[in-house]
């Protein structure tokens, strides 16, 4: 940890040429990360980025850390092994909505429910970019693409709802138009003990341009983004005139003047039960209505690698294994 204070963005930038399309939202995420890392208090040598396949998955090549660009969907599984074996490392997982929610959906949910000490960044652009524009598991119903000329029929995933549903202990959402917000979410996720997932709304300017513009453009944010603040009533709007209350367990957007501020949900990231966080996550149904961003859940808990290593330590209280003893542990007999 000695040289963390002395690094700059340049130290965290690899010598590889960045190969995303000009104007891609991934650039702003990469810059946010490279600027954040010098502040975050970890060594480059102890930092690993693991990715699968897709545009987002090129991310590790551009960070001057350890990195593995693996295969489609498998990054959470590969990272699980690394984090269990090496709890001393800072392991990040980067992938897109196709990588993590389609082909890798199984690995993502199990990494989350096991609470493996990973910081998972899910770049959600609601489209397959690298394969040239097919609909993804987060695309809206009716999406017309090369593979769905009459419109897609599948109900999309809401990644935050998925994460909360599979017992993730840290769940957040941010977007690529707000560097400071991204950095705050990445920092919080990194500092979390256990599996942390951040959904990043990310613009694909080639195949799905403007997918989030209705909520993330500067002049739309005050009305369309609901900033979650721990311990505060959930409210938004230029003057904070709107808010969210629970109505029979369902989150409803209301005018604060109509219901009074006391009727609003007071956000509690650390609530052991994720029901309210889940209700809030349901507000992101489409891009026409206000969408919560920020930390939905941050629950302190022991991470998987630590628990695994505690079992190892317990098994070794009387010293390490004795190979001779192992080989003689079943009944034996002598032949002379």
């Amino acid at each position: 940890m000695s040289d963390t204070a002395t690094t700059t963005k340049k130290d965290w930038t690899s010598d590889q040429e960045v190969r995303w399309c000009p104007g891609c939202g991934d650039y702003s995420i990469l810059t946010a990360m490279q600027l954040l890392m010098p502040e975050i208090g970890t060594r480059r040598e102890d930092t690993v980025f693991i990715s699968g396949i897709g545009c987002a998955a090129r991310f590790p090549y551009y960070m001057n850390t350890y990195g593995m660009h693996s295969i489609h969907g498998r990054s959470p599984a590969i990272a699980t092994g690394l984090a269990m074996a090496r709890p001393d490392l800072d392991v990040w997982v980067v992938g897109g909505d196709g990588d993590m929610l389609s082909i890798g959906g199984n690995h993502l949910i199990h990494a989350l429910r096991r609470n493996v000490n990973l910081t998972i960044l899910l770049f959600n652009n609601q489209i397959y970019g690298l394969t040239k524009g097919q609909y993804s598991p987060t695309s809206e119903v009716g999406k017309v693409t090369n593979s769905t000329p009459m419109g897609s029929l599948d109900t999309p995933f809401n990644p935050v709802s998925v994460a909360l549903g599979v017992e993730a202990t840290f769940v957040a959402r941010t977007h690529d138009m707000d560097r400071a917000h991204m950095q705050e979410m990445f920092r919080r996720a990194h500092d979390h003990n256990g599996a942390a997932i951040v959904e990043v709304y990310q613009n694909c300017n080639v195949f799905n341009d403007g997918a989030f513009a209705s909520i993330t453009k500067k002049d739309a944010r005050a009305d369309m983004l609901i900033e979650l603040t721990n311990g505060e009533p959930v409210r938004f709007g230029p003057e904070g005139e709107r808010g969210v209350m629970l109505d029979n367990g369902i989150a409803r957007i209301v005018e604060v003047d109509d219901v009074g501020v006391d009727a609003l949900i007071v956000h509690n990231e650390a609530a052991p039960d994720s029901s309210v966080a889940f209700a809030l996550s349901r507000l992101a149904g489409d891009r026409e209505s206000p969408t919560p961003v920020g930390v939905f859940r941050a629950l302190d808990s022991i991470d998987y690698g630590a628990a695994v290593n505690a079992q190892l330590a317990a098994a070794q209280t009387e010293g390490g294994g004795d190979l001779h003893g192992l080989l003689h542990s079943l009944p034996t007999w002598e032949v002379s």
């Binding site: 693991i50 599984a77 699980t80 690394l82 269990m84 199984n106 690995h107």
Partner: peptide
Amino acid sequence: AEDEIAAIGSALGAAYGG
């Protein structure tokens, strides 16, 4: 692991870690 693919994936991740 959750499946055969994760089983080998995790083993490969651990191998990367030494």
